[in-house]
Amino acid sequence: MTIPTTPPPAAGAPRPAPGRVGPATLAVQVLRSPRARRPDAVLVVAAGALAVMTLAAVFAPFVAPYPPDAIDLLAVNAPPSAAHWLGTDGLGRDLLSRLVYGARTALLGPLLVVIGSTVIGMLLGLIAGWRGGWIDAVLGRVFDVLFAFPSLLLAIMAVALFGKGLVAPVIAMSIAYAPFVARLTRSLVKAEVSRPYVSAYRVQGFGGAWIAFRRVLPNVTPIVGAQSTLNFGYVLAELAGLSFLGLGVQPPTPDWGAMINEAQSGILAGAFLPALVPAIAVVIAVVAVNILGDELSDRIGGGIPA
């Protein structure tokens, strides 16, 4: 009795595998993962809400019934009507239009912060996890210091230094959120480094930097990326808070946080809608993003808590 040297027939040809994992194929993998067969209702609603907000922000000029700063002096603090579906604010501006335009800054800010903090955090985390030793120790202490500062405080400091607007807070919050990303990246990279495939690359003669950036980093990116989306909601709420304090986006640019701020006096006059509508929008956006982010990190990362 002899054993054939060729592979057994049972082991046949492999399943066809897609090309390299880009964001698109990754998205496809995520959507096709087993649990995606019957997406639960909450998830659909959350995704729908975010999609509506994103589309509204992108196509604001077509969606909004009025320009965001068009003043209708005949309707100040007007209740909802056929002309103004959500009513108007204290200056007679259409609330719906301002809400739609406000989605632009409300979504753009957190998006930039998530991207910025992910890039900074992954870079630092990779360096710390890959090199270890004193670099790891120093970076670890730097993260500890950053953790001690509330991100809102950092943003306020940045505004004090560089002036009001969207840019300074976005940079400050990118830095403030980077340690969260960096810590996760570091621990994932550390686990990856101890795996034999990294040793195998070394034995083949590949350099450390190549292995770290071209092989290890892409392998941890899906998990880190999924975790980073969870930050989106927090940042959105904090940036809205900053605008509410008058330190963020400046009037007359419509912004949800600023709208709440401007509507304060109206509340005493009995017009609660101008404050309530943007507040609800913030809540819906944050909840929707968190639901999606949770699901995403569950599917990709096996549910590592943030």
Partner: peptide, 19 residues
């Protein structure tokens, strides 16, 4: 060095890059 010696590792489930 790599051309002088190569190695095949114990566990092929871990020694190949999953991606």
């Amino acid at each position: 060095r790599a051309r002088s010696v190569q190695m095949v590792f114990q566990d092929p489930y871990l020694s190949l890059d999953p991606r």
